[in-house]
């Protein structure tokens, strides 16, 4: 598989065409240095989460009150918290919780949004009216407040936090998907498919979804930072993961009492949230170059 074989404008097989399209995308993505950096960070995060028990230097739950609130040192690289637990180990284990929350939200919310938005845009008429009014109702509440209300009603836990975040973030995707659908719906290629007798379900799934999905993916990657922050916010307020589960937002919350004298307790998880959010933003930017045909490439 040489470069020429992949980049040819005249692929000879379905496989060559697919791989070629992927390689083109990768080349575009690679041209964006920051996006590659974002990808590297996220891959590292995935590896860290996967191998957390093996790479974390100490037990994240082991308390050592004699060693509490120690600054970063050779023994505790990022210091210890109020109960003498190793912050680095807690961050490493916390990455699992964070990844679980954002990963699940990123799977649920856009799918709901895609489904509701494209159906509303494609069907039009009263279906559109009903679905979009429901969307408007959800959009009318501030996101975090709505999530708070859900968690408060359902009881604090990671699963409920995920549910609350997913339920509050789908409307934006539904709006986006509907707007895309409205422009695609009247395109000539849709008319041409209709003339071949294609039914609405086929048009929706085979023709409209592939075009909406790419802009949704970009949007999700860019929203990811916000989702992490919301998850951390819920954790901070004690409505997400429950102690002693190491969750980044909850860790910041624990550290806030000591923030002036023992800054590292809150700052270390804060840094982790910052780095991961930034990585997602870079990644989203690179994905936009690849997936968004309106991005101004020739």
């Amino acid at each position: 598989m040489t470069r020429e074989w992949l980049l040819t404008d005249a692929p000879q097989t379905r496989r060559q065409a697919r791989l070629g399209a992927l390689y083109q995308g990768w080349l575009t993505f690679r041209a964006n240095r920051l996006a590659v950096l974002g990808l590297v960070i996220l891959v590292l995060l995935l590896l860290i989460a996967a191998f957390a028990p093996w790479i974390s230097p100490q037990n994240p739950f082991a308390q050592d009150l004699a060693d509490r609130l120690k600054p970063p040192s050779a023994q505790h690289w990022l210091g210890t918290d109020a109960l003498g637990r190793d912050i680095l180990s807690r961050l490493i284990h916390g990455s699992r919780v964070t990844l679980f929350i954002v990963g699940t939200v990123a799977l649920i919310a856009p799918v709901i949004g895609l489904f509701i938005g494209t159906v509303a845009g494609f069907a039009g008429g009263w279906v559109d009216q009903v679905l979009m009014r429901v969307t408007d109702i959800f959009l009318a509440f501030p996101k975090l407040i709505l999530a708070l209300a859900f968690v408060a009603a359902l009881g604090p836990s990671i699963a409920n936090a995920v549910l609350a975040l997913a339920v509050t973030s789908w409307p934006a995707y539904a709006r986006l998907a509907r707007a895309e659908t409205l422009t695609i719906r009247n395109a000539d290629y849709i008319a041409a498919a209709r003339l071949q007798g294609a039914g609405p379900l086929r048009l929706l799934i085979g023709h409209i979804w592939p075009l909406c999905v790419s802009s949704l993916i970009v949007r999700v990657a860019l929203d990811m930072a916000g989702i992490i922050l919301s998850a951390a916010g819920l954790g901070f307020l004690g409505l997400g993961a429950q102690p002693p589960t190491p969750e980044w937002g909850a860790m910041i919350s624990d550290g806030r009492t000591y923030i002036l004298d023992f800054w590292w307790v809150a700052a270390m998880p804060g840094m982790a949230i910052f780095v991961v959010s930034l990585a997602f933003n870079f990644l989203g930017d690179g994905l936009r170059d690849v997936l968004d045909p309106k991005g101004g490439r020739e």
């Binding site: 379905r14 065409a17 290629y189 008319a191 498919a193 023709h207 592939p210 075009l211």
Partner: peptide, 10 residues
């Protein structure tokens, strides 16, 4: 405008 941008000829 009459060919779907993501669909190959095939």
């Amino acid at each position: 405008a009459s060919l779907h941008p993501r669909h190959s000829v095939d």
